[in-house]
């Protein structure tokens, strides 16, 4: 019960932050004589959310398990290429191309998971290594964009219901599914357990490798969906589309911004979506106000740190209350709890 209230609280804080950002953004945008809430602008923001949203949902799962996935940008690029090359601009290839892309991504995720959980390689290094391997493959095999995507598939990235793009609807739908997965299934619960404390989970009889592997597979599949979406928007596959987007670090930042602990074990999908939305609103406001693109990065960097600084203060306060009430945390609390107990 406590956990549920805590998780709700985290998400509520992110929601307030998002509302704050939207209000400030709307005021700033109106000072240059534009309407923040116009259909076009809302569509821009939601479109900006969807790609990072896919990646960040997967990243949330991995971070919940106290791992990381730095290979996502290369999975994104690889997926866009596999999809575009398999489709060859023909409508009848769409289904097969999507299945093949997802299968390849799942295999990469499986490799990540096995290296992390089986070989006990730190997630940072394992996924950095796998990412480098894919990057090397991409750089060797492809000199530029390749393949082509049929018109029907391009519609996925281009069309929308009113101001809401289809891609964002799919993203939110998947977020609902993953949130249900975390809340209702055994593996979902085990992800929190293993991320929170692998030692205690093992003593409780969990197979600690299983949730980690599942999380990595799901993360790579989510990244592949992001790649499919980008292929649909670009009309071709591109070997650099993922690394240009900086999806590895941005997705981690969005997850942490959404209140998920980088140490694992605490967090929520909706917080992550909130974090992604904050980024999207920020980007949109800066674009509308024609901020220098280099200055955008400065603002983005400062916002990430400042938001997490405000946020961690609160989150740690909550955790402290919980652990003193339980009075059982002394044996197995992860380092951060101990740090707070000072």
């Amino acid at each position: 019960m406590t956990t549920r209230r805590l998780r709700l609280d985290n998400t509520v804080i992110v929601l307030f932050a998002l509302i704050g950002v939207i209000i400030i953004g709307a005021v700033l945008v109106s000072t240059v004589g534009r309407n923040f809430f116009s259909d076009g602008n809302i569509r821009d923001i939601l479109t900006g959310m969807s790609v990072l949203g896919f990646v960040a949902i997967g990243q949330t799962l991995v971070i919940l398990c106290a791992s990381l996935d730095l290979s996502v940008p290369y999975v994104v690029s690889l997926s866009s290429l596999i999809a575009a090359e398999t489709m060859q601009g023909r409508q009848e290839n769409i289904l097969w191309a999507v299945i093949l892309t997802l299968l390849v991504a799942a295999a990469i995720g499986l490799a990540n998971g096995v290296i992390v959980a089986g070989l006990k390689v730190n997630g940072f290094i394992a996924t950095l290594g796998v990412g480098l391997i894919i990057k090397g493959y991409l750089a060797t095999e492809y000199k530029g964009t390749a393949g082509s995507v049929p018109w029907e598939f391009q519609l996925v990235g281009a069309s929308g219901l009113g101001p809401v793009p289809i891609s964002t609807i799919i993203m939110v739908g998947l977020a609902v599914l993953v949130a249900l997965f975390l809340r209702k299934t055994r593996t979902g619960h085990h992800m929190f357990a293993v991320g929170g404390n692998p030692a205690v989970s093992r003593l409780s009889g969990l197979r600690t490798w299983q949730p980690v592997v599942v999380a990595h597979v799901m993360c790579s599949v989510m990244a592949a969906l992001a790649g499919l979406l980008l292929a649909s928007r670009l009309g071709v596959g591109s070997p650099t589309v993922g690394s240009q987007g900086g999806y590895d670090l941005l997705s981690i930042a969005a997850v942490v911004l959404g209140g998920t602990l980088l140490l694992g074990g605490r967090g929520s999908i909706w917080g992550t979506i909130g974090g992604v939305a904050i980024f999207a609103v920020l980007d949109n406001v800066m674009s509308v106000m024609q901020v220098n693109p280099f200055l955008k990065d400065v603002v983005r960097g400062i916002v990430i740190v400042a938001a997490v600084a405000i946020y961690t203060g609160r989150a740690i306060e909550r955790r402290r209350a919980r652990f003193s009430k339980d009075a059982s945390g002394s044996a197995g609390t992860p380092p951060v709890d101990a740090e707070v107990a000072r």
């Binding site: 990430i304 740190v305 600084a309 740690i316």
Partner: peptide, 22 residues
């Protein structure tokens, strides 16, 4: 401020590079 160093230095990385290019 107890921000994870991963995030702090990630923010610093973006801000420094952006600042210097600006």
């Amino acid at each position: 401020l107890r921000v994870p160093s991963f995030i702090v230095t990630l923010g610093m990385m973006l801000a420094l590079l952006g600042g210097i290019l600006f």
